[in-house]
């Protein structure tokens, strides 16, 4: 009999505990989530906040943590956000670039192109309409830089 009473009181106590804690976590989660940037997912368990998702850079990651920590009721913050990997800039080797640039300017007889250390220098004349086409073709060849010294007619 005693054991049953004890168990019942335990059950009541624990249900009270969970009822008391559940909405609080949900409120906290909603409050933080509303302030976080897109891509950040907020989870709260017993006042402990966990951040997951992908952000653009370290600054955004730190900012997200700051927002969560500043929220009243947040006991701890686990920052499991990942930073989106930066795609390295690929620059073509001069030998490849020289050949490809020569191919690209072939259809623009009034344009001369020089390549040195990845920098493509365009000289000569061109019409406005052809300029965009030429620039599109050259930019696709992965140059370091395009020095456009063309006179636009």
């Amino acid at each position: 009999m005693k054991t049953t009473k004890f168990l019942m009181s335990m059950a009541i106590a624990s249900s009270l505990f969970f009822v008391g804690c559940g909405p609080k976590d949900a409120d906290l989660q909603a409050a933080i989530q509303a302030k976080e940037a897109a891509g950040v997912t907020v989870a709260v368990a017993k006042g402990n906040v966990t951040l997951t998702g992908e952000v653009a850079d370290e600054t955004a990651k730190a900012e997200a943590e700051k927002i969560a920590k500043a929220e009243k009721g947040a006991k701890s913050v686990v920052n499991s956000l990942t930073v989106k990997p930066v795609v390295p800039v690929v620059i073509a080797e001069d030998t490849t670039l020289i050949k490809n640039v020569a191919d690209a300017v072939k259809s623009f007889p009034t344009v001369k192109a020089d390549v040195k250390d990845g920098v493509v220098t365009l000289t000569g004349q061109i019409t406005k309409a052809s300029l965009i086409t030429l620039m599109q073709h050259v930019a696709a060849l992965k140059p370091k830089k395009i020095e456009n010294k063309l006179t636009v007619k």
């Binding site: 300029l131 930019a139 696709a140 992965k142 140059p143 370091k144 830089k145 395009i146 063309l150």
Partner: peptide, 16 residues
């Protein structure tokens, strides 16, 4: 791009 940098004259962007 052409509006920001007319005739692509500055050479500070590679748009691919």
């Amino acid at each position: 791009y052409n509006q920001i940098d007319p005739n692509f004259a500055t050479g500070d962007l590679v748009l691919n």
